[in-house]
Simulated scan of single mutants.
Amino acid sequence: MLKHTQNLLDIMARLRHPEEGCAWDVKQDFTSLIPYLIEEAYEVVDAIERNDLDDLRLELGDLLLQVVFHSQIAEEQGLFSFEQVAEGICDKLIRRHPHVFSDAVFNTDEERHQAWEQEKAIERQKKNKTAEPDSVLSGVARNLPALIECEKIQDRAANHGFDWPDVLPVFDKVLEELDEVKEAWQSGDQAHIQEEIGDLLLVTVNLARHLNVNAEVALKESTKKFSRRFQYIEQQLEASGLNLKDCELAELDAFWNQAKQALNKK
């Protein structure tokens, strides 16, 4: 094993030592570490989006620490070790790439994708330890961000033929769902409004799929754009001696259009 990898494992074991370790590290378990695992994954994404490669190196280290932390807890309980975690992903990569590690031949990307999905389906079947019936949708993590989960579910269904043949009917479906949201709003039934908003979001994700857009990334970028424009408005109001809450909507809208023009030039 590489020197620094082994050093990291040794440090983690020392931190978890019941008498000589760190009290905070010792009391952690799989569940208590979930927020840190999620946070570190998002911080890796943030470093990538900022193109800060030095920070990316550091954040990947923090994410690796979470893998080592969980592996150490598992080893203490006699479940598995870090070495077995590494062994498992090595085996999976080899299984899923028979065109690289054996004599399989794929003539098109579609053939390669179908073989990948077939292997994943076999793995899901082996992992299914519940009484739930096997489904092509099985195995999608329930705690994913909603947009990512939605996209993965739709991809699974599409891979088995449940999808529109092209994008035009999806545009029509978005408009149909938007009309249904309006009808629900007019009814005043809050539960129905929520349901129809959910349907609108779902079909919007489907539209993004058909246009080869990652819905999660698209929404993130639009949220950032909104924040930049809103902060521009705040700056202009402050420079003018105005208070945000005291302004009429028409004034704010004018500042918003000004922000669009100003920031689009940068």
Rank of each mutant, 00 (worst) to 15 (best):
Y36A: 15
K92R: 08
Q28W: 04
N264E: 13
E119V: 08
N128V: 07
G188N: 12
L8V: 07
R57K: 10
L202V: 11
L65K: 10
L242K: 15
V67L: 14
Q118L: 09
M1Y: 08
Q190I: 15
R112H: 03
L64V: 03
I48L: 14
T204M: 13
E196K: 10
R112I: 02
K127A: 14
L64Y: 02
F82N: 05
P133S: 05
H160Y: 11
K224I: 11
E176T: 12
V105T: 12
R16F: 12
L93F: 13
D189P: 00
F30G: 01
K260I: 08
P98K: 03
G88P: 01
F230N: 01
R228M: 02
D10Q: 13
A131L: 13
R229F: 00
D163S: 14
H113N: 03
R16D: 07
K3G: 00
A259W: 04
D134Q: 08
R16G: 00
E180K: 13
A121E: 02
Q66K: 08
A254Y: 04
S227C: 09
D29H: 08
R57T: 12
M1K: 08
Q261F: 09
L8I: 11
R209T: 07
L252I: 15
D46I: 01
E119C: 07
E180F: 10
E248F: 06
W24Q: 10
A250L: 15
S71E: 02
L137H: 04
A191F: 11
W164V: 01
D166H: 15
W24T: 11
L9A: 11
E19T: 11
A131F: 10
F30W: 09
A74T: 02
P169R: 04
Q186V: 02
L93R: 05
Q77E: 15
L144P: 02
P133L: 01
E196R: 08
A157R: 13
E238N: 06
A254T: 14
Q231Y: 12
L219P: 01
E221I: 10
Q186D: 14
E149Q: 15
T108Y: 02
E19G: 00
A218F: 05
L219G: 02
A104N: 03
G61L: 12
C247D: 01
P133E: 05
A41M: 13
V205K: 01
L65N: 12
A191G: 09
E176G: 09
E149V: 01
A191R: 14
A254K: 12
A250S: 15
I148K: 08
E75C: 00
E234K: 06
V174N: 03
F82L: 15
N243Y: 02
A254G: 05
L56V: 05
L178W: 04
Q28H: 14
P169T: 05
T223C: 04
K92P: 00
P169A: 05
A41G: 14
L178F: 07
A158V: 04
L168H: 07
L64P: 00
S227L: 14
D189A: 03
N214S: 14
L53G: 03
A146L: 11
D155T: 11
V205S: 03
G139Q: 09
L202T: 13
Y232A: 05
V105C: 05
R142T: 04
G88C: 05
E59N: 10
